[in-house]
C-alpha cells in the first residue's frame, strides 16, 4: 500500500487559509441531512399521513351531506403527520451523539453555537418547504374532490392552513431538535416529544375547568386544529403559532447554552 498524500500537487492551494463561514457549515449540514435514510423515511411518512388520512376523509364525504368540509377533513392527518417530523428533528442531532459523529464534527468545526444554528436553519428550511408542500397538496386534493359540494373556505383560512401548517411543522421539529440537543439520546428525546404533543390534551380532561381551558387552548393538538379552523378557545391560529415560536426560541437558546458549556 503506497501512501500518497498528494501534498505537493494536491487540490489545496497553499497560502492564506480562509476562515470558515456560515455558508460552509450550511453546506455541510445539507450534505448530512440528505445523505441518511432516516430523512427520506420520516418525510415520506409525513406526506403519507397528511395526504392519506385527508384523502380517506374526503372520499368518505364525497356525495354525502354529512361530514366536514375539506378543511376540517385535513386535521387528523396533520396531527398524526407531525410525529415523523418531530422524529426527524430529534434524529438530526441525536444521531450524531449516538454514533459518535459529533466528536468528528466538533473536531472539524469547534464553534458549537454556530454549528447548532446551521443545523437548525437547514432542518427548519427543509421541514417548512416540504411541510407547506404537504398541506398545500392536501387542500388541493380536497378542493378537487369536494369543490362543488360546499362553501369554499376564505383565502385567509387557506393561507393559515397551508403556510401556517408548514410553519407549525417546522417549528415543532425545531423544538424537537432542541430537546434532542439537551437530552442527546434518540429514544429519550422522541418520548419526551410525544409527551409534549399528546399529554397536555389528555391531562386537560382531568383538570378543573379554568386550568382545563388554558391547557386545552395551548395544547399542540388544539394548535393544529386551530390552523384548520376547528380549534377551541378564543385564541386565533396565527397567535398560537406566535406562542409556539416563542417557546421554540426559548428552548433552542437553552440548547445552544448547553451545547457550548458541556463536554462532548
Amino acid at each position: 500500500m503506497s501512501i500518497d498524500l498528494l501534498t505537493d500537487e494536491n487540490s489545496l492551494r497553499t497560502g492564506e487559509v480562509p476562515p470558515t463561514r456560515l455558508g460552509n457549515v450550511l453546506a455541510s449540514e445539507w450534505t448530512k441531512i440528505r445523505s441518511v435514510q432516516s430523512t427520506l423515511w420520516t418525510l415520506a411518512s409525513m406526506f403519507a399521513l397528511i395526504l392519506g388520512l385527508a384523502l380517506i376523509a374526503d372520499g368518505y364525504s364525497y356525495n354525502r351531506a354529512e361530514g366536514g368540509g375539506y378543511l376540517g377533513n385535513g386535521v387528523g392527518g396533520f396531527i398524526v403527520g407531525q410525529i415523523p417530523v418531530v422524529t426527524l428533528g430529534v434524529l438530526v442531532i441525536t444521531s450524531e451523539y449516538g454514533t459518535g459523529m459529533i466528536r468528528t464534527t466538533l473536531t472539524a468545526y469547534p464553534r458549537r453555537v454556530s454549528l447548532l444554528t446551521a443545523k437548525a436553519m437547514v432542518f427548519f428550511a427543509l421541514a417548512f418547504v416540504l411541510g407547506t408542500l404537504a398541506t398545500a397538496l392536501q387542500l388541493c386534493c380536497g378542493m378537487v374532490i369536494l369543490g362543488g359540494q360546499e362553501d369554499s373556505p376564505t383565502l385567509g383560512q387557506i393561507l393559515l392552513a397551508v403556510f401556517g401548517g408548514g410553519l407549525y411543522l417546522a417549528l415543532m421539529g425545531l423544538f424537537a431538535l432542541s430537546v434532542g440537543t439537551l437530552l442527546r439520546h434518540s429514544a429519550g428525546a422522541i418520548s419526551v416529544m410525544l409527551g409534549v404533543l399528546l399529554l397536555p390534551f389528555i391531562l386537560a380532561l382531568f383538570l378543573p375547568t379554568g386550568m382545563r381551558e388554558l391547557l386545552l387552548t395551548y395544547s399542540p393538538i388544539n394548535m393544529s386544529a386551530s390552523l384548520y379552523g376547528s380549534g377551541t378557545g378564543d385564541v386565533g391560529g396565527w397567535a398560537l403559532l406566535g406562542v409556539l415560536a416563542s417557546a421554540t426560541a426559548v428552548i433552542l437558546a437553552t440548547a445552544c447554552l448547553a451545547m457550548r458549556r458541556r463536554d462532548v
Binding site: 494536491n10 487540490s11 470558515t20 460552509n24 453546506a27 448530512k32 445523505s35 464534527t105 472539524a108 468545526y109
Partner: peptide, 14 residues
C-alpha cells in the same frame, strides 16, 4: 468526508 470537507471550505475533489 464531503460534509467534513465542506466545513473547511475544501473542494469536492479533495
Amino acid at each position: 468526508l464531503l460534509c467534513l470537507a465542506q466545513l473547511a471550505g475544501l473542494p469536492r475533489r479533495r
